[in-house]
Structure formats: C-alpha cells, structure tokens
Amino acid sequence: GEEMDTAEIARQVKEQLIKHNIGQRIFGHYVLGLSQGSVSEILARPKPWNKLTVRGKEPFHKMKQFLSDEQNILALRSIQGR
C-alpha cells in the first residue's frame, strides 16, 4: 500500500470531529472499533507510517476512508445526536 501521512490524517479527523461535534468515543466505536483511550492516543500522537505494524496501520486506513466520504461524517453526526 501507499505510505500515509498519519499526522495529517489525524489532524483532519480531529478537525471533522470538532466541526461536527462528534465525540471520540462514538468515532472510535463506529469507525475504528477501538476504545476512546486508543482513539485519543492515535489522534494525539500518531506514529509515523513506517513505524506502524500492519495492525497499527488499520485505523489510518479506516480514518482515510471515513474522510473520503462526507456521508460517513453525516451518519456519525446523526448517531451522536440521538
């Protein structure tokens, strides 16, 4: 696969979550399948791509996919709003 700019992906995700008022817990649960603790760690201190294991890269693939389609963001927003 291609190398990803993990810091940039994390920054964009944080931006979207704040902009749409989506909590990290909801994002972690529905998008990444991770706990809030793992999510906040990944978003606060993303490791460089070449330092990640295959498993460590997974959340970034999912985040990139999440960012690529605004429908994903809107869907999360409606879950959050319940």
Rank of each mutant, 00 (worst) to 15 (best):
S38R: 02
S38T: 13
S38G: 11
S38P: 10
E8C: 07
T6R: 01
L67C: 04
R77L: 10
D5P: 06
V31P: 00
R82S: 13
Q65I: 10
E15M: 07
K64V: 12
E41A: 09
A7K: 13
L76A: 03
Y30P: 02
Q80I: 10
E2V: 08
G1T: 12
K19T: 08
Q12L: 07
I79M: 14
L74H: 13
R82D: 10
R55P: 08
H20F: 12
L43H: 00
L76W: 03
E41I: 04
L52T: 00
R25W: 10
N21A: 08
G1C: 12
S38F: 07
G81C: 14
H29T: 12
A44D: 14
L76F: 03
N21T: 05
D69G: 06
M63G: 00
M4Y: 07
Y30N: 06
G1V: 12
S40K: 14
S35A: 09
F27C: 00
I26Y: 09
E15V: 07
E41W: 03
L17M: 04
K51C: 09
R82K: 15
G37M: 13
E41N: 07
M63S: 01
A44G: 12
L67G: 01
G37A: 14
V13W: 02
G81V: 14
V54T: 14
H20Y: 14
F27S: 01
S68W: 04
D69T: 07
N21R: 09
E2S: 10
E41C: 07
N21F: 03
K62P: 00
W49C: 13
P48T: 06
K47H: 06
L76S: 02
A44H: 12
I22C: 04
P46F: 02
M63K: 00
D5I: 02
A44L: 12
Q80F: 06
T53F: 03
K47W: 05
I22Y: 00
L52V: 01
D69A: 08
K47E: 12
L67F: 05
M4E: 07
L76C: 04
E3K: 11
V13S: 03
R25K: 13
R82E: 14
R11F: 06
Q24D: 10
E3P: 08
G33D: 06
L34S: 05
L74V: 13
N21G: 14
I22M: 03
I26Q: 11
K57I: 06
H20T: 03
K62A: 07
K47D: 10
E70F: 07
T53V: 02
V54L: 14
G37P: 10
L52C: 04
T6Y: 01
V13T: 07
P46V: 05
N72Q: 14
S35C: 10
P46N: 02
I42E: 02
G1W: 08
N21S: 10
K62T: 05
N72I: 06
Q71T: 12
L74M: 10
Q36M: 09
R55Y: 10
L67Q: 00
H61L: 15
S38L: 13
D5F: 02
R55T: 13
E70W: 07
E3F: 15
K14A: 05
N72R: 08
K64L: 11
I42V: 09
L32H: 02
I26W: 10
L74E: 13
R77K: 15
V54Y: 12
E3R: 08
V54K: 14
G33V: 01
E8W: 07
Q71D: 12
D69W: 04
G56K: 03
L52D: 00
S38K: 14
A7C: 10
N72D: 07
V39F: 08
R25E: 15
N50F: 06
A44Y: 10
G81I: 13
V54S: 12
L17C: 04
K62V: 05
F27E: 01
A10W: 02
T6F: 01
H29R: 11
N50S: 15
L17E: 03
A10T: 10
R55I: 08
E2A: 09
R11Q: 06
R25I: 09
T53E: 06
P59I: 15
M63I: 05
W49N: 01
P59L: 15
G37N: 12
S40D: 15
Q65M: 11
Q36G: 12
G37S: 14
Q65D: 11
S35K: 12
G37T: 15
L34H: 06
E3M: 09
K51W: 05
P59R: 13
L67N: 03
N72T: 09
I42D: 02
F27N: 01
M4G: 03
F60D: 01
K51G: 07
M4N: 05
D69C: 08
M63L: 04
Q36I: 11
P48R: 04
M63H: 00
R11Y: 06
G81E: 15
I79Y: 10
Q36S: 13
L67R: 00
E58T: 06
S78N: 13
S40I: 09
I79T: 08
R25P: 11
P48N: 04
I9T: 06
A75C: 09
I79C: 13
E3C: 08
H29S: 10
F27G: 01
I73H: 04
Q71A: 13
P48L: 04
F60Y: 13
Q65N: 13
F66R: 00
Q36A: 13
I42W: 03
I73G: 04
Y30D: 05
N21L: 01
S78D: 15
A75V: 09
R25Q: 13
G23Y: 09
K47A: 09
E3G: 08
I79G: 07
D5C: 07
F60P: 01
P59V: 15
S78C: 09
S35R: 07
N72C: 10
K57E: 04
H61V: 13
M63N: 00
I22V: 10
E58P: 01
L43E: 01
G81M: 15
N72G: 11
G28W: 02
E2I: 06
A44W: 07
L76H: 00
R11I: 04
E8D: 12
I26D: 14
I26T: 13
I26K: 08
T53M: 04
E2L: 07
T6C: 02
E70G: 09
V39K: 01
N21W: 02
S78L: 09
E15N: 05
I26N: 06
V54Q: 15
M63R: 00
H61Y: 15
R25C: 12
G37E: 15
I26V: 14
I26R: 04
Q36N: 11
H29I: 08
E41F: 02
S40C: 11
L43D: 02
N50P: 13
I18Y: 13
S68L: 10
A44R: 09
I79D: 06
S35L: 04
W49V: 03
W49S: 04
G1E: 12
G56N: 07
I22L: 06
E15Y: 10
Q71K: 14
Q24R: 08
Q24S: 09
E15R: 07
P59M: 15
Y30R: 07
H29W: 09
I79Q: 13
I26M: 10
I9S: 02
K14C: 06
I22W: 03
L17T: 03
I79H: 13
V31R: 00
G28K: 02
A10P: 02
G56E: 15
Y30A: 10
K64W: 06
E8M: 08
A10M: 00
K64M: 11
L34G: 04
F60G: 00
S40V: 08
K19L: 07
Y30E: 12
K57S: 05
I73F: 12
F27R: 01
A7S: 10
A75S: 14
Q65S: 11
K14T: 04
N21I: 00
V13C: 06
R11K: 15
F60V: 00
I18E: 15
E15W: 04
S78H: 11
L52I: 03
I22P: 02
E58R: 06
K64R: 11
V39W: 05
L43R: 00
G81D: 14
Q65Y: 08
I22F: 04
T53I: 03
E58V: 11
K62W: 02
I79L: 14
G23Q: 14
I22H: 00
I73R: 03
L43I: 03
M63Y: 00
P46W: 05
R25N: 13
I18N: 13
S68N: 09
P46Y: 03
P46E: 01
K62M: 07
G1M: 14
K51P: 00
R82C: 11
I73T: 08
V39T: 15
N72H: 11
I26H: 11
F66L: 02
V13P: 03
E3Q: 10
P48Y: 01
M4T: 07
I42T: 05
I18G: 09
